[in-house]
Amino acid sequence: MLFSSPTADSSNAPLPDGAPLPPIEVHDLTVAYGRKPVLWDIDLEFNEGELVGVVGPNGAGKSTLIKAMLDLVPSASGWVRIYGEPYAARRKQVGYVPQRESVDWDFPVNARDVVLMGMYGRLGWFRRPSRKDHHTADECLEKVEMSAYGDRQISQLSGGQQQRVFLARALAQDARIYVMDEPFAGVDAATEASIVRVLRDLRAEGKTVVAVHHDLQTVEEYFDSLVLLNLRVVANGPTSEVFTRDNLLATYGGRLTILDRAAEAVRRGGGPRIDRP
């Protein structure tokens, strides 16, 4: 199987029709770097067609949770199931938007090249993207309002535009579940609006989105469900039930300034903006 298609193995396992399988299910997941656990006994289940926000302080293990779902970090115990199967069997159902800082943006490719990479998994070994794939890539760029920038070298794009290129690449994966690591981190207002529009379109198509999020002020507006995380799951459920002062206190611990501001934001549904708590 040395030269099997990267996604061939068993990732074509058919999805059971109308089965009540959750898109993502996490059971007893523990992840440790060395001897230091970064996630403890995580139990989660997400509903199909929802926008799910993963919220918590720095070092809470948000990115690790995302990476554990995608088999990027080994788990010490527990398991993750995508539509009832291990991730390796469901790769094609999952699109991924990594943190923008995870790559070198001076790399000699243009925006369209990056979007095309979303289709590499489908193409398999040795096959090059066709003209049709290029067309699809342009469509994906259009969805994030970047069609004018397809030929632009990626270092010539602003931070927000780079983020949108990453989102377009995930759209090119044509998945049912999208996993995003801080898609809103450090982006401008136009990009934020564009991303929100894409997320809502995805939800309208019945897709599931799980996104790490930092801005407590916009949490209620953007997400249907929340995971409040700080090494363990503090709360998980519909945003209206979970996004409470007590839960935030439990999640953010002793960080009082932030808590007060967050509580104020919750109370008023607005108020001072809280960036990167």
Partner: peptide
């Protein structure tokens, strides 16, 4: 194509199953 992906974003490559 494979080397391009590997050099630009190895993590994304891994997620796709490469």
């Amino acid at each position: 194509k494979e080397l391009k992906l590997l050099c630009f974003d190895p993590e994304f490559a891994a997620v796709q199953g490469w």
